[in-house]
Amino acid sequence: MLTERQQLILRAIIDNYIRSAEPVGSRTISKREDIGYSSATIRNEMADLEEMGYLEQPHTSAGRIPSNKGYRFYVDQLVHMPFMRAEDAQHIRRVFAEKFYEFEQVMNQAASILSGLTNYTSIVLGHEIKSSRLKTIQMIPLSSHSAVVILVTDTGKVENKTISLPKEIEIGEVERVVNLLNAKLMGVPMAELRNRLHTEVAKELGRYIQQCEYFISLLEEALKHEPDDHIVLKGTTNIMMQPEFRDVDKVRDILTLFEQNEMVVRLFDSQERGLQVRIGSENKEQAVSGCSIITATYHLDGQPVGTVGILGPTRMEYGRVMAILNELADNLTNAFERFYKSGA
């Protein structure tokens, strides 16, 4: 366990290094008014902190920099989450007060805000809710033998697929089919649509069109629904502005990772409540072993439905980023619940 003096010195070193990106010496720390120890005392404590694995000494400098272990202790024990600047909080709340017609718009806005406020790479990951339901279905004729089927879910997702129409079907019949589908399928979970098509729609559909079986097969394909993850990345090149990432190969590996959705989901996905901070080698992917990832979940009816997060250097303003993520996650939760329950 670190002594109170060691904790004070470790915090001062990390705070200074976060601001300067330069190794920190004992003389620099001794000049701080909140320390009150001589340079020699600080130097001895720094040597002990290095021996315990909390600090490292780059071979080119007499100063010290935090290790991953040092950052972990800092985040868990020393960092204090500051209040957000009033103008930042007001900006976030003003954006979320706007009317959105698709939740993807909310995700885009959240990612842009987060990247803009932090200058790191931001991500908003939204899982499609398993219980999402059909809000409405439309069928718009494109020609005498084709139409586009538009599905709108109660979470604001819009899907559209083009189908071929039976030659004999008339516009009036299409309208009756759409009315029947809305009457029978509105409010049905998306995953159950094709099953309900056969159990509740097929028999009655035979009253409207002659080629019922053929039309049912077309609708079955149109109603095919594959749940997916929605990923919004912003500021992907911000990592290049950090002095730790002057190595072109390092940057290339990270940017390549951003192009792999499955990898991004694996890195940022979190079903744990609250803020999660992974530092350096705690991230299993080699490409981001020199980065920190901070995530927070947003919820619907108390259940996590998505993640908002940041990727940046381990030399990160942890307290400020955590405060911003907390505020964004709360606003995403409120926006999602409002959107989902009101049907936009």
Rank of each mutant, 00 (worst) to 15 (best):
R196T: 06
I137Q: 11
V75K: 12
F73G: 08
Y318Q: 10
E285W: 01
V232M: 03
Q109A: 14
N68V: 14
Q77A: 13
R266T: 12
M190V: 00
E220V: 01
C291H: 00
L325M: 03
Q210L: 00
D330S: 08
H225L: 03
G309I: 03
K135Q: 13
I254T: 05
H59V: 12
Q271A: 11
S61G: 01
A47G: 07
N334M: 12
V152A: 09
S67G: 08
E173M: 11
E272Q: 15
A111R: 10
L8G: 05
V201I: 12
N334K: 07
E220T: 13
E50R: 14
T237N: 04
K69L: 15
K157N: 10
Q6I: 03
E51W: 04
I169G: 05
A62Y: 13
R320H: 02
H127M: 13
E259V: 01
L300M: 09
Q286E: 12
F268Q: 02
Q105C: 06
I279S: 11
A287V: 03
P58C: 06
T333Y: 03
T314K: 08
L125H: 14
G172L: 05
N68T: 15
S270V: 07
G53P: 07
E22H: 02
G343H: 05
G319D: 07
H59E: 13
A344V: 12
E175V: 09
E175S: 07
V177C: 02
Y17S: 00
H91R: 14
F100Q: 07
S270E: 05
N182G: 07
M81L: 05
P82R: 02
Y101P: 08
V152Q: 08
H225S: 11
I137A: 12
M1R: 01
I92Q: 04
R11Q: 14
Q303L: 15
N261G: 08
M322S: 08
P141R: 11
N238H: 11
D154Q: 05
E50C: 10
F215D: 15
G25F: 00
E102C: 14
L78G: 05
Y340C: 05
I92R: 01
R196P: 02
L223T: 11
V95A: 11
D228M: 13
S143T: 03
Q6F: 00
V95C: 11
L218R: 15
V321T: 15
V264F: 03
V288W: 02
E285K: 11
I137N: 10
K31A: 12
N16Q: 08
M190G: 00
G309E: 03
H145I: 12
G126E: 01
S144C: 10
E104D: 02
A12I: 12
I13E: 06
N331I: 01
M190H: 01
A183K: 15
H145W: 01
T155E: 15
T297I: 02
G309T: 01
A344H: 09
V248F: 13
R176H: 05
Y340I: 04
D253Q: 15
L257D: 04
G172H: 15
S20L: 00
E33N: 04
G70D: 06
Y17R: 00
H230C: 11
L233W: 09
E168N: 11
G302P: 14
E104F: 03
G36N: 06
V178E: 11
D48S: 10
L10M: 00
L332H: 01
E102Y: 10
D154G: 03
L151I: 15
V288H: 06
S281T: 15
K224Q: 15
T333K: 05
L185I: 04
Q260F: 09
K161P: 13
I18W: 05
P189I: 02
R19P: 04
A62I: 04
